[in-house]
Design a protein around this nucleic acid. Sequence first.
DNA 1: TTCAATAGTTCCGAAGATATGAACTATTGA
DNA 2: TCAATAGTTCATATCTTCGGAACTATTGAA
Lengths: 130, 130
Amino acid sequence: MKPLFHPAIEDVTVEGILYALSDPVRSAIYADIAGSQCSMNCSNFLNISEKPVPKSTLSQHFKALREAGLIRSERRGVEMQNTSRCDEIAARFPGLLPAIRQALNLQTEGHARAVRASRRRLAARKAKNR
Amino acid sequence: MKPLFHPAIEDVTVEGILYALSDPVRSAIYADIAGSQCSMNCSNFLNISEKPVPKSTLSQHFKALREAGLIRSERRGVEMQNTSRCDEIAARFPGLLPAIRQALNLQTEGHARAVRASRRRLAARKAKNR
DNA sequence: TTCAATAGTTCCGAAGATATGAACTATTGA
DNA sequence: TCAATAGTTCATATCTTCGGAACTATTGAA
């Protein structure tokens, strides 16, 4: 197998990072990898979205994250070990990734809150109509 | 003319912001608009890049920034007045835009430094071969 | 009012990017 | 050696983006 391409940290661009994280599937994958101490393999993410993501698509998403410089992928036996390169990126662009992560967290919290509120409204309406 | 669409601030997404700013022309436009007190019209940006950007393309870029929630565009006489919505976004996603702006600044500084160093090397080589 | 100038938008075809099923490669373990 | 597992690559259908040409809105001058 061809060795996978990883850019040198000085070739990593802000635009590349923003683009890689501008896809909901990729930002979810990245959040998982960056948030967990241990490394992750691709198959962990087949059900990351509402509908399952095909593995060829998943492979392309990992490639995009890799080529943006966000993750490092190394073969470990039969599967891939994916780790975040956030320390390197923090040295080059301090504060960028934490700010994005925080914003993504706020957004999912806000979304969860909206879903809960909508469930409450629905339940109230049902109770009223009983 | 149809009134231009601007999303409500609660419909603005992190992914949308990242995507809008992941294009070098758009991030340059946004940096200019956010960095200046006064409003900007589109024609200011025809020469924002190395090669001039056609106005139809520029119009699409403004649309992308608008629909991501980053700017507000209003007609002021014959031209458009573009202003940043960064205050609204700061209330929803605190710290996100400043972090991105800082990273983009670091990157252009780094690039300028690399260009200067390369010019110095070139000059040194010329002097040596004189 | 009419016309020209200015500033942008919209339309549309070409070129480029993305998603995904199918086929392929690499590794492990039986 | 073979099957199972994990992921990549390929081919192609689909979606996006770019940019020239045509169109729209506004202003100011004749």
